[in-house]
Structures are given as C-alpha cells and as structure tokens.
Design a protein around this nucleic acid. Structure first.
Length: 209
DNA sequence: CCTACGATGATCT
DNA sequence: GATCATCGTAGGT
C-alpha cells in the first residue's frame, strides 16, 4: 500500500466503472482526535438524473448541489433523522453521479473508531454506510470536501485494489427505485461487507379509519 | 442466524 | 404529510 492520493481523473469516469475500482482503496479522515483510515469493501453506484434511486433524479437542490459539481468531492447527507452517509462524486462537472461508500475495514486508528462507536465489535465498526461515517467522524461539516486535495482532511489514498475475481455485484440495498440494476459492488467473503437488506416501505403508524 | 420495529428530523410534494 | 441510499435492540429459531 502506498500513501499516494488517487488523482481527480480517477473519479472523472462513468460511475459504474469508478465504483468497483474503489474496492480496496483507502479512505482516511484526519481530525484533532487523530487519523482513522479504512479499506473500502462495499460501494454502490448512483447514476444521476437517469436513475430513479439517485438523489439527483429530480434535479439540483440545496441538499444535492455537490453531486452536480466536479468529481472527487464528498457528498454527505443526513437521513432517518440521525445518520450520515458519504458519497464520492463522479463524472465531469455539471453531471451528477456518485458512489455511496457502504462499508470498509478499519486499517488504522481503530482505537479512535472504537471510541466513536463504543458498543461496536471490530467487525461492525464500518459495516454499513452510517456506521462508516460514524467510525470516521464524517458528518455535515465534511459535505463538499475535496478528497483529492493534498493535505486535505478527508482523502482517498491508493490501496491494494481488490482482486477482480473477488468483486461481486448485486442489487442496491434499501432503495425503492431501479431495483433491477446491479450497482452494488463488494469484495466476496469479506466479513466487513454489510448484510443485504431489501427496502421495506414503512407502515403508517395509525390510520384514522 | 433471522425478522420486526421504533427512533428522529431533513427534505420534498 | 409522507418518505427516507439506517441502525440498534428485542425476541424467536
């Protein structure tokens, strides 16, 4: 593994090409508490305006603005009233595709990650998109950060790319649209890959009849 | 292992 | 007002 940053051109490609090539690469967040880094084991591609499951499907809004900017930037969003998830923006400026980072294996700063998720087992520290953000200390303030910036706090470093023979694809997790598109990518057999959960529409609490 | 469900608030219609 | 790219816990197998 080297400590080199992935160049912006890495992200300036079709999102379904970037996503699998991110497996095995390293995401590092430097904070005052220290550095935490992980090796990506599971990602999902979201293909901008053509993809009903994408946040960019209905056009640009205040929330998704970063997705419409240049590649190599972090799009962080808040969901379910308590969780953050992080994407890496792909494709040229003006387009709006991105890769959701779903899971990883902590390779340094495990003590800090553990402190942020006190009740978690080591395996579960970054097993799921919101857990990944918690372990790395990613929240609102990290939205819009350039992950290709030398010296930047949140960066993607070159790791050992996953063996292509071990890369699996399948339907995306927890999404309601375009279920048939196999745009989830993971490293087969890796224990940190999140368990698949189909989308379950939540039932209304009470119907007044 | 599995399935069910409540927490909690921003976003969009 | 409904939905949501989720998680932790509780309970059963």
């Amino acid at each position: 593994m080297s400590g080199a940053l992935l160049p912006r051109e890495f992200f300036d490609r079709p999102v379904d090409e970037v996503a699998p090539s991110l497996l095995g690469q390293v995401l590092r967040h430097r904070t005052p508490e220290g550095d935490v880094a992980l090796r990506l084991t599971e990602v999902e591609a979201y293909a901008g305006p053509l993809d009903p499951a994408s946040h960019a499907y209905r056009g640009r809004t205040q929330r998704n603005a970063v997705m419409f900017g240049p590649p190599g930037f972090a799009y962080v969003y808040f969901t379910y009233g308590m969780h953050f998830c992080v994407n890496l923006v792909c494709g040229p400026d003006g387009t709006s595709s991105a890769v959701l980072l779903r899971a990883g294996e902590i390779i340094s700063g495990e003590d800090i990650a553990q402190a942020r998720r006190p009740r978690s087992t080591v395996r579960d520290l970054a097993r799921g998109p919101a857990r990944l953000c918690q372990a790395l200390g990613i929240a609102r303030e990290q939205n819009g950060l350039d992950v290709c910036s030398p010296g930047g706090p949140l960066t993607v470093l070159a790791g050992d790319p996953a063996d292509p023979a071990l890369v699996r694809t399948g339907p995306r997790t927890g999404v309601n649209g375009a279920k048939e598109v196999p745009w989830r990518f993971w490293i087969d057999g890796d224990p940190t890959v999140s368990p698949y959960r189909a989308h379950v529409p939540r039932q209304r609490k009470k119907v007044v009849q």
